[in-house]
Amino acid sequence: MHSIKHERLEAAVLFAVQHQVHLAVSYSEIVTQINSAPIKKSQSYRLDDLIAAKERELIKITRYKQSLYQDWKDGEITQQEYRDMKADYERQTSDISAVLTRLNAERAELANGVDNEHPALVAFMKYQNIEALNREILVELVDYIKVYENGNISVKFKFADELRKIAEYIEINTTEDTAVAGYPPLQTPLTVCFPNRR
């Protein structure tokens, strides 16, 4: 039975929303400092590594696909095997190309930077003084809420990808000095879990 007291559920979700709002406010303050600095960085080694790995994978599959025809002509594989393997390589090529397109778009977006008018920040920051939940807040901010059999609660927020990108932009552009200046650790608790306490 996945049942829980309404008051406990509401309190847990309210706490999760307040925590995410606090994080958005912190992000906004750090973004303001970064954007007022004379030089901003935009290179993401994570994205560079992912793109390089996918490009290598694409080259490898292209080579396999090119040698496939010769294998068929040499009688090493049947015509049906050739067709099946060729279709599989084409599917893999298409999948990797789609991932590369997405990663390159993300890298370009990161190069453009982040400002305080970013929809993810705006959505959370307008609820800075939230003391109670209502339908509007839940619809705008929460993707879903799960209540588990043991009574644990999990809250998944909307804007997960956007907040992750903002966190990465901040991480790329902050020094150890900024981290010591009292800012919270750069994390995006886009799913917040509350253990059951009876």
Rank of each mutant, 00 (worst) to 15 (best):
N129K: 15
N129Q: 13
D115M: 07
E131N: 13
A105W: 00
V114E: 06
D115L: 08
S28N: 12
I39M: 09
I39V: 14
L58H: 10
A53F: 05
K126V: 06
F124E: 02
Q79W: 02
V31W: 11
K40F: 00
A37D: 13
E109P: 01
R83E: 15
M85Y: 15
D71H: 03
E55K: 14
Q128E: 13
R46L: 10
A53G: 11
R63A: 13
Y89M: 08
E117W: 02
A111F: 09
V99S: 12
V99Q: 15
I77P: 08
F124I: 04
L50F: 07
L50R: 14
E81F: 07
L58D: 02
A53S: 14
L110G: 06
F124W: 04
K54V: 01
S97H: 05
A111S: 09
E29K: 11
N35P: 08
K54Q: 13
L50Q: 15
Y64R: 10
Y45G: 01
A105I: 02
A52Q: 10
M125L: 04
V99Y: 05
E90L: 14
A87S: 13
L110A: 04
V122A: 09
A120F: 07
Q66C: 00
K126I: 05
A98K: 13
K40E: 11
M85C: 06
I61W: 06
A111I: 02
A123F: 05
A132F: 08
A52Y: 06
L103M: 12
E109D: 12
R102L: 10
D115W: 09
G113R: 07
D71V: 00
Q92P: 03
E81V: 03
E117I: 00
